[in-house]
């Protein structure tokens, strides 16, 4: 997917739609949208060669804000839908995006099996440790003693989910963590995730300024990973188990062969596609 002399060049703006986001002012997801469009511009992938699939939630509104192929899917099911797209059209760059509720709670099962299946796609989770769209309930990544949710006013009392460790254990081929406040750094992570073969998982710490205003402090807490990424799962596991959750960078680069059944599709250009629709 490297830019070549035959590809036109694109700017981030070429991937944005006219639809104005309805996110709260200050939401981290604005910046993530910018990072994704910057990454696509950096890779010079024509918008019609990208499919962006989401589930349900604040961050899952993202496909409408781009002008690539997008689908606002079923709650928690972005990954199976993305798998179907990639398997039937392997030449597309497929990105699934959503939040921690969509991906780890109602869709937690699919997260594990998408890592295991290792289809060549990128999964971007905007993690704000809260269900934002239903107005502030604890998610699987919420600390057990967070008492601000009306649904769990005494805290959840249950152990938070550790998405990176689970991704590694389940077989994800690329694992990274970023921070929405660093738009360029996050764009680089997403670029690398898309380039890396197989299932790439990128956790983006993306503050919810409405229901988790304390997350504004994340900008002072994130720090670059102190070590280079490893391709050794055991080493990555030791690092991930002991990290503080604010370690930003590529944390694991695997070498598993991606899953892709069948033959590549025959259609390979917009011109060919348009021929099929000539009336």
């Amino acid at each position: 997917m490297e830019a070549t002399s035959t590809c036109p060049s694109y700017s981030a703006r070429d991937y944005k739609s006219e639809v104005k986001p309805v996110w709260c002012p200050g939401c981290g997801d604005y910046s993530v949208l910018g990072s994704i469009t910057k990454a696509l511009a950096e890779l010079s992938i024509p918008p019609e060669r990208v499919a962006l699939v989401s589930g349900i939630g604040c961050s899952s509104r993202l496909p409408a804000y781009t002008n690539v192929f997008g689908f606002h899917g079923v709650h928690g099911r972005a990954l199976p839908i993305a798998t179907g797209i990639k398997v039937s059209r392997p030449e597309l760059t497929v990105i699934a995006s959503g939040g921690d509720g969509d991906g780890f709670s109602i869709g937690g099962n699919h997260f594990m099996h998408a890592c295991r299946r290792n289809v060549d796609m990128t999964y971007i989770v905007m993690d704000n440790e809260v269900y934002g769209m239903t107005k502030g309930q604890a998610s699987p990544t919420t600390a057990p003693d967070w008492e601000k949710s009306k649904l769990t006013p005494q805290g959840t009392g249950i152990n938070p989910f550790h998405p990176l460790v689970i991704a590694l254990a389940a077989g994800a081929n690329f694992i990274a963590r970023g921070f929405s406040g660093d738009q360029n750094g996050t764009a680089k992570l997403i670029t690398e995730a898309i380039r890396h073969p197989g299932f790439s998982f990128v956790q983006l710490l993306s503050p919810c300024v409405t229901f988790r205003p304390e997350q504004r402090d994340w900008k002072d807490m994130v720090h670059p990973a102190a070590v280079d990424p490893t391709d050794d799962p055991a080493r990555a596991a030791r690092r991930l188990m002991s990290d503080d959750g604010f370690n930003v960078g590529v944390l694991f680069r695997g070498s598993r062969k991606p899953f892709q059944p069948g033959q590549p599709a025959s259609v390979d250009s917009v011109a060919d596609l348009e021929k099929e629709f000539v009336l």
Binding site: I106, M133, K135, Q137, L151
Partner: peptide, 9 residues
Amino acid sequence: AVYPITPQT
């Protein structure tokens, strides 16, 4: 047993 969803939340 509970799970939030609009307009039930």
